[in-house]
Simulated scan of single mutants.
Amino acid sequence: MKKLLYDVLVEHLLFMETNGDLGSNANLRNANLRNADLSNANLRNADLSNANLRNANLRNADLSNANLCNADLCNADLNNINLHNAHLSNAYLRNTNLINAYLINANLSNVDLRNADLSNANLSNAHLRNADLCNANLHNAHLINAHLRDANLSDADLRNANLRNADLSDVDLSNADLRGIKLDGAILTNTKF
Rank of each mutant, 00 (worst) to 15 (best):
L63T: 12
S64M: 07
N57G: 05
D72P: 03
A91P: 04
A76V: 08
A86F: 00
A71L: 04
N82M: 08
S89T: 08
A56V: 03
A86N: 05
N90K: 00
L88G: 04
N55G: 11
L83I: 07
L88F: 04
H87T: 13
A66C: 01
L73R: 06
N80A: 12
N82C: 13
I81E: 00
I81D: 01
N79P: 01
L58D: 07
L63H: 09
A76P: 07
S64L: 05
H87Y: 13
L68E: 02
S89G: 01
C69V: 11
L63I: 12
N75E: 14
Y92I: 11
L78T: 00
N70F: 11
L93Q: 04
N85W: 06
L83R: 06
N85Q: 08
I81S: 02
N57Q: 00
N85G: 06
N80Y: 15
N82S: 13
L83K: 08
N85T: 06
R54Q: 14
A61H: 05
L73P: 07
L63E: 10
D62C: 10
L68N: 02
N85C: 09
A76L: 03
N57A: 04
A76E: 05
H84V: 12
N80D: 15
N57S: 06
L78P: 02
N75S: 14
I81L: 03
R59C: 09
D72R: 10
A71E: 06
L88C: 08
L78E: 00
L93E: 00
N85H: 14
N55Y: 13
N85R: 10
N85E: 09
N79A: 05
S89F: 14
A56M: 04
L68W: 03
N65L: 12
D77A: 00
L58S: 10
A76W: 05
A66K: 02
S64Y: 08
N80F: 13
A56K: 05
N82H: 13
N79F: 15
L73Q: 07
L58Q: 07
C74K: 15
N57H: 01
H84K: 13
N65H: 15
R59F: 05
L58A: 06
A66E: 03
I81R: 01
N55A: 07
N65T: 13
C74W: 13
N55V: 02
A66Q: 01
N67E: 07
A86W: 01
N79E: 12
A66F: 06
D77F: 02
N75H: 15
L93S: 03
N80M: 07
D62L: 08
L78S: 03
R54P: 00
Y92N: 14
A61P: 08
N67H: 08
Y92G: 08
S64P: 09
Y92D: 14
H84N: 14
I81Q: 03
S89W: 15
D62E: 12
N57C: 01
Y92Q: 13
N85L: 10
L58R: 07
L93I: 06
S89N: 15
R54A: 03
L73C: 12
N80C: 12
A56S: 11
